[in-house]
C-alpha cells in the first residue's frame, strides 16, 4: 500500500524537488521571516528585538515619507498602466487589420519593451529630459519653452510615465494575438448591417477582447507596482527631487540597504505585498462581472 503510494508519487516529487526546495527556502521562508522581522527592530549588527506593532504604528501615523511613497507609486500606476494599455491596444488594432507588412512595425514597437528595463535606457532617459536635452529641443522647434523635467518635482514623475508608455510592446503583442482570435465574419456582418466603426469596437472588439484586457491589466498593474531600476537611476537612488520619485520600492531599498532599518523595511515589504495581493484579488473577484470567456457560452 505505502510502497505503491510512494512509487506512484515519487517521480512527480523528484522532478518537482528543485522548485519545492526553492519555494520553501526562497519564497515561503523569506516571506514568513520578513513578517516576523516586520515586528522587530533589526539593524543587522545586533539581534532582532521584538517591538510589536511599533513599526506599523509609526508607518501609518507618523511617517510622512511612507505616505509620500504610496502617493507617488499609486499616481504612477494609475497613469502608467492605462497609458501603456491604451497605446498597446490602439497600435495592435491598427496593425491587425488590412496591413500585410506588420512584421517590421511589430519589431520596432516591441524593441523598447525589451531594452526598457536596462540601466542604459534609464541613463538615456535622464539625458533626454535634461534642461538642454532632446525633449526641450523638440519643444523649442514649436516655440514652447522647456522645463527641467527631471529636477522639477511637479514633472519628474511624468518622465517615468512616458518611459512606461514607450514600452507598450509586450501588451501590444498579447492584444494582437487576442485580436487574431476574433472571428472576421462578425465584423463583416456588422459592416453589412451598416454598424458604425466605433460601435463595432464597443460591441464586438471590447467584449470579445475582455479576457485579454483583463490579463494585461493584472499583469501590468503588478509590474508597475514593482518598478524600481528606472526610478532608482533617474532619481539618483534617493527618490529626489523632493521625494517626487520616491517609489515604494526605492523607499524600501533605502530603508533596508542604506540605513539598515531591516525591521522597518520588512514592514514596508509586507505592506507592498498586501497592496499587490489586494489588487490581484479585486481584479479576479470582479472579473466575472466584466470578463466573459468564449467557451463559457456554449
Amino acid at each position: 500500500m505505502i510502497k505503491r503510494f510512494i512509487a506512484r508519487n515519487a517521480p512527480g516529487y523528484i522532478f518537482l524537488s528543485p522548485w519545492l526546495l526553492g519555494f520553501f527556502l526562497l519564497a515561503l521562508g523569506p516571506i514568513l521571516a520578513s513578517l516576523y522581522l516586520s515586528f522587530t527592530k533589526y539593524d543587522m549588527v545586533s539581534d532582532p528585538r521584538w517591538v510589536g506593532f511599533a513599526n506599523y504604528e509609526y508607518m501609518f501615523t507618523r511617517d510622512r515619507r511612507f505616505w509620500k511613497a504610496l502617493e507617488v507609486t499609486f499616481t504612477y500606476v494609475a497613469l502608467a498602466v492605462p497609458a501603456r494599455l491604451i497605446m498597446a491596444l490602439s497600435v495592435a488594432m491598427l496593425l491587425d487589420k488590412g496591413l500585410r507588412t506588420i512584421g517590421l512595425y511589430r519589431a520596432i514597437f516591441y524593441l523598447p519593451s525589451l531594452l526598457g528595463a536596462s540601466i542604459a535606457i534609464a541613463i538615456l532617459w535622464r539625458q533626454l529630459f535634461e534642461q538642454n536635452g532632446v525633449v526641450n529641443q523638440v519643444l523649442a522647434v514649436f516655440g514652447i519653452e522647456g522645463l527641467a523635467w527631471i529636477t522639477n518635482p511637479d514633472t519628474s514623475l511624468y518622465t517615468l510615465v512616458i518611459l512606461a508608455m514607450w514600452q507598450f510592446g509586450s501588451p501590444m503583442l498579447i492584444f494582437l494575438a487576442g485580436l487574431r482570435g476574433i472571428p472576421r465574419d462578425l465584423y463583416e456582418a456588422a459592416e453589412i448591417d451598416g454598424t458604425p466603426k466605433w460601435r463595432q469596437f464597443t460591441r464586438i472588439t471590447l467584449p470579445l477582447l475582455a479576457p485579454v484586457i483583463f490579463f494585461n491589466l493584472v499583469l501590468q498593474t503588478i509590474e508597475s507596482f514593482k518598478t524600481f531600476s528606472s526610478a532608482f537611476i533617474i532619481s539618483n537612488g534617493t527618490g529626489a527631487p523632493a521625494d517626487s520619485l520616491l517609489f515604494f520600492t526605492v523607499y524600501l531599498f533605502n530603508e533596508a540597504f542604506k540605513f539598515f532599518r531591516m525591521g522597518y523595511a520588512s514592514a514596508l515589504a509586507w505592506v507592498l505585498l498586501l497592496i499587490i495581493g489586494a489588487f490581484t484579488a479585486i481584479a479576479f473577484l470582479t472579473s466575472k462581472y466584466w470578463v466573459h470567456y468564449e467557451n463559457e457560452r456554449d
Binding site: F23, I31, A33, F228, L252, S266, A269, W270, L273, G277
Partner: peptide, 19 residues
Amino acid sequence: LMMMTLMIPYHVVLIPQYV
C-alpha cells in the same frame, strides 16, 4: 502555489534572503 509566487514582488523576499 507556484502561480501565486508569480505576483510576489522580489522586494518582499529580499531582506530575509540577504540576511
